[in-house]
Structures are given as C-alpha cells and as structure tokens.
Design a protein around this nucleic acid. Structure first.
Lengths: 166, 166
DNA sequence: CTTGGAATGTCAACAAGGCTGACGTAAAAT
DNA sequence: ATTTTACGTCAGCCTTGTTGACATTCCAAG
C-alpha cells in the first residue's frame, strides 16, 4: 500500500504499471475463484464445463439448449458432450417444450441440485470471505468494475439474468 | 489504508443471491478480460498459455524456468512446449545463469516485446475503460476484493511481484 | 400440403494445452 | 564421490474447445 494512491480526487491518473497490477490481480484471483469448485469436480470426473452448465441451469431452470449456448459461448457439439454426461449421470433432465416441441428445457434433478449446492457453497464461501475482508465499499467497486469490463453482449446477459429467469 | 470502513463490516449482510451475482460477474468479466488478447493471439497460432508466459517474462526479465513454473502453476512439460515455440519464433531467449549454470534466465527479444506491447495495450485499453467508467473508488475496491480472493500462496506471489521484479 | 428453415442431436476428426511417467544431462551441493 | 537440483524431452492420455456433415423434428409460410 505504499503507492501514490489515487484518492477520489485524483481522477484516474493511472500509470500503465498500476493498470498492469489490475491485470495480474484478475489472473491470480480467477485462479482462486475456481480453485474450490475444481477440487470438488475433479473427484467426480467433471470439469469446469460441467460446473458452468449446472450453474446456469440452476440459475434459469427451464432454459433451452440454445439459450445455454448463447450464455456459455461454446459450440453445440461441445455443450452437447457435457450435457450428455449430465443426463446419463442423472443430474440434469430435459423436457420437450410444450409450445415448441423442438426445444428442450433443462432442469436440475435433485442429484443435480445437490452438486450445484456443493459447488456454489464452496465458491460462495470464498466470495464471502473476500467480501468480508474487503468491506462493503470495496464490494460495490468490485462489481462496478467487473460490469464495466464485460463485453456489451455479455453485460446484457448478465443484467438480464439479474432480474428475469429464462 | 481502507481502515475506517471496518466498523460497518457487520452490516455486510449479503444474501446468497447477491454473492451469486458476484460469481457471475467474475465469469462474464473474465471473458471480456481475455477477449482482446485472444483475438490477437489467434491470428498467430498462439494461445493464452503463450500470453501468460510472455507477460510474466516481460514482468520479471531474467526470471528462471523454475520461477515461471511456480507462478503459472503448470508442469514443466506443459510450459516447455510453449517456451519451445517462443524460442523458435524468436520471441524469447534463454541465457545460461552465471552463478548457477543449470538455470536458464528468460528474456523477451525485441520481437517478443512487440507482441507483449500489442497484447497488453489491448488488455490495458479495456481495463482503463472499465476503470474510467467505474471511478477511482471502485478501482480501489476492485483490487481489494481480488486480493482477498486469491489463495495465500498466489497472493504472496502477486504482492512479491508488486515490488521486486527479479 | 409442401417446403424452407430453425432447434436439436450426433458422428467424426482435429487441436490446444493441461496432465503423468520415465529418462537423460549438466551442474551444484553434500 | 554421490546425491540433488534444474532443466529438457519423448511418449501417451484427457478435457474441452473447434469444424464439417448429416438426420430428425417441427414451426411457419407459401
């Protein structure tokens, strides 16, 4: 903390080096961010891809494969490989759409919800600890910067998820 | 230097859902964070692994292979595959250590520095834009939360890099 | 009713970049 | 003199991304 700290007055006079520190902070923090779920997942032959799928299905129950594709930003082949294993292992189930029968609406099973809970408990614990250590103002700033860092399209989805599920 | 806040920390009353939003913010923001360098890298048959190596060699010129291994958290086989292509393409050079001749000290060549510049310019532009949009206090909070989110070991390395580039 | 296109599944092949294991070599440390 | 350290390398495996091609089902428009 020995820097010429940019007080609230000194409007964004940031050296390349200060910005670089932000970049490295993102790098190291993201590792921490994924570390706990990764440990759980690796004991059951799953990876981050499964985690992401489970997370967003939990977040928006009944979402379609197409929606999930858009949110995750991967190809359908890639997603399908993941979903298949989740179906086979009975963590996720797909229901044919009532209105449009081509669509598959995705839901977590009880078993799927258990995994989701385990994963997000672990991740939330770290988040909470970080929030607690940093304090409320820091949390606000954290979220603000992250939002500003997203691609507009992602931000739209992020904000969309905030209110309306599916 | 963010002491005065700590009193209100008991008021850090955050629902699981609020914390989840932080989690999703990390996910989407990280995508934005890597998007610009990724676009540059893919035009030249490189990936994020190359980016990371180039970044940290630039950050700590003369660092050894072992150091890099510790920072990046990968196996030497994995790192070696990356380094080999960087040597072959003349972006990085290795000098045998003077004191300890077993060690290889890594340096960017002029060509390597050019790539590093291109990559970090792109990444910094987004960071700066986010910082500008969010404001100075937010930036402070952003960094504080990220630091708190790191594994202790990573935090040590992050803080270590902050002062002494070796 | 037929047909075009959308939503989905699936097969095959490939690449990047992780991993482990095993082995080699030079140099430092004991 | 021996062991340990730092590094390189070969070989093989896994996950998760990619493209391309093709089948199915079904909505919607002509």
């Amino acid at each position: 903390m020995a820097e010429p700290i940019t007080q609230s007055e000194n409007l964004l006079f940031l050296t390349d080096d200060q910005v670089r520190k932000g970049i490295e902070a993102m790098f190291f923090a993201y590792r921490g961010f994924t570390a706990d779920p990764d440990r759980i997942l690796e004991t059951m032959d799953y990876g981050r891809a499964h985690h992401r799928a489970v997370h967003f299905i939990h977040r928006s129950p009944g979402t379609t494969v197409g929606n999930l594709l858009a949110i995750l930003g991967v190809t359908k082949q890639s997603l399908n490989r993941i979903l298949r294993t989740l179906f086979e292992d009975g963590l996720v189930e797909a229901r044919v759409g009532k209105k449009d029968k081509r669509e598959r609406h995705l839901y977590l099973t009880e078993k799927g919800r258990e995994l989701e809970r385990a994963l997000s408990d672990a991740q939330r614990a770290r988040m909470r600890a970080a929030y607690r250590a940093a304090g409320p103002q820091a949390v606000q700033g954290f979220r603000t910067v992250l939002e500003a860092m997203m691609d507009p399209e992602m931000r739209r989805q992020y904000l969309g998820l905030k209110e309306a599920g599916a």
